[in-house]
Design a protein around this nucleic acid. Structure first.
Lengths: 172, 172
DNA sequence: CCAAATTGTTTTAAGCCTAAAATGTTTTCC
DNA sequence: GGAAAACATTTTAGGCTTAAAACAATTTGG
């Protein structure tokens, strides 16, 4: 039985050349679990929004962004914040303007830019939905202690930073 | 300044009746952070799969399920495992059969059931992709220590259980 | 046995989403 | 000043996704 080099503390970078097929099963499992949690909660929230308010999750998310920005946002801002493509936002906004929830106008100072805001109707509806939404989330996380919540926040912040760094490495 | 009741340890259930608009901001922030992490990583993986292998993430995920089931799976199985709708799987499978990655046949014992398997081509391509995929995930989580990974696993397991319980409460 | 309920899949209609190309606008910088 | 680069948005083409209804086959309980 050959001595198994663990590789967890690789001090000599030349050792890398032995090309051990490293085991990343734990990270893979972690990723799958993260994905499962998100999918589960997201599906639950989506269903409740539809049943209670007949609204889709993306629409709710977009309104949530705008609720935090009383002076409006540009489509690019929204796109970055929501981490979705530009074209996606265009369509989403179109439908929400159509339904009277959003107001869209071309910027006075830069005619490339569209500024969108919640209408009075949109803000009212959003606030009602958000209040209930918050209780759903609280219920979904109900079995986590305050300490669990803090610890998860910390670890997810670290995860986010790690992923952003990795993404930047690839696409500098 | 009124004494602020914290409500974190509610021992008397009648106290609930005072209808304090409880503060669930922490849970909300946690949910948003969870969603951000997932979206970030998912987007990164999606992009790499497309660039390196010209394959979509849902196709990859479906093949991953089948790779773990040498004897094949029914569409319902896949649908439950992937946590997506039945109709979604139908279309996904259709395209993967079309491209020669999947084999689909009607069960001998139950003519409602469709059993799908990876073809030799599908399995080969998947294995190649999966090997590289694993290194991407490892890189995305690179800044987490083994202890962080374990702790996240534990907390996410707890989160999953909590969310499932909450979902079951609503839809028993 | 057979009607009713259940289960597995597909279809439908609508909306979401992406990447890439196209369009129009502004900024940069020679 | 004007060409080139950068930017904001829309369009395009294709695929993903859902909920609900429809269809088909099997199981269940009188």
């Amino acid at each position: 039985m050959p001595a198994e080099s663990d590789c967890s503390e690789m001090l000599d970078s030349e050792t890398k050349a032995v090309e051990t097929p490293e085991d990343h099963a734990d990270e893979l499992r972690l990723w799958l679990r993260l994905l499962t949690c998100t999918t589960l909660i997201e599906g639950e929230v989506r269903g409740r929004l539809r049943q209670r308010f007949d609204v889709t999750l993306p629409r709710f998310d977009l309104m949530a962004q705008l609720d935090k920005a009383p002076d409006g946002m540009t489509l690019s801002d929204v796109s970055k914040r929501m981490m979705v493509s530009n074209g996606n936002v265009t369509g989403l906004v179109e439908r929400l303007v159509e339904s009277g929830h959003l107001d869209r106008r071309t910027s006075e100072t830069d005619r490339r830019v569209q500024v969108i805001r919640l209408t009075k109707l949109g803000r009212g509806e959003f606030r009602r939905m958000a209040a209930e939404h918050e209780t759903w989330i609280a219920d979904l996380f109900a079995d986590l202690s305050p300490k669990d919540v803090r610890e998860l926040m910390r670890l997810l912040a670290k995860t986010k930073a790690s992923a952003q760094k990795s993404a930047a490495r690839r696409r500098p």
